[in-house]
Simulated assay, not measured.
Amino acid sequence: MVDFKTDSVTEEKLQSFIDFYRPQVQAYASEWERAFVYNVKEVGLYFVQLGIWAT
């Protein structure tokens, strides 16, 4: 499961964005599994501006 982020983020501040958004994408995955009874294999954030995938 991927959550695309279009924030204006620099590499220096990337970790703080990851820390901020990680609970959100984990909540999406938990709700997906609960609603559809389907295990989510991987969750992550994709920062569009930097082209970086973070788990």
Rank of each mutant, 00 (worst) to 15 (best):
Y46A: 05
T6V: 12
P23V: 02
L14V: 08
Q26D: 14
S16N: 09
V9E: 02
A35G: 00
Y46R: 04
I52N: 10
G44C: 07
G51D: 12
K13M: 03
E33I: 08
V37R: 12
A27D: 06
V9M: 03
Q49Y: 06
Y21L: 05
W32R: 10
V43N: 01
A35N: 06
I18S: 00
E42L: 06
G51K: 09
N39W: 00
V48K: 13
I18N: 01
K13A: 08
Q15S: 10
D7T: 05
T6M: 12
F36W: 12
T55I: 10
E12G: 00
Q49M: 13
S30Q: 15
E42A: 06
V48M: 13
L50W: 13
F47L: 07
V25T: 08
A35H: 04
D3N: 12
E11P: 00
A35R: 13
Y46I: 07
P23D: 02
W53Q: 13
E42G: 00
F36V: 04
S30E: 13
V2P: 01
Y21R: 01
Y46G: 05
K5G: 07
V40G: 05
F47Y: 14
K41C: 00
K41T: 08
D19A: 11
F47M: 08
V37G: 02
F17A: 04
V2S: 08
L14H: 06
I18L: 01
F20Q: 09
A35E: 09
K41E: 14
W53N: 13
V9Y: 03
V40I: 14
T6G: 15
Q24E: 12
K41D: 12
S30A: 15
W32C: 15
F17D: 00
D19K: 12
T10H: 02
Y38D: 09
S8D: 14
T10L: 04
N39Y: 00
Q49A: 15
S30R: 15
L45W: 02
K13V: 01
D3T: 09
F36S: 11
A54N: 11
M1E: 08
G44V: 08
W53T: 11
Q15F: 03
W32Q: 11
F47R: 08
Q49G: 15
W53A: 12
L45S: 04
V25Q: 03
R34Y: 11
D7R: 11
G51F: 10
P23R: 02
F20M: 05
R22W: 10
D19V: 03
P23C: 03
E33V: 07
D19Q: 12
V43H: 03
S16T: 11
Q26H: 07
Y38K: 11
D19P: 01
D3P: 00
N39H: 04
W32A: 15
Y28H: 11
N39I: 00
V43Q: 05
E31H: 04
V37F: 07
D7S: 13
L50K: 09
F17T: 00
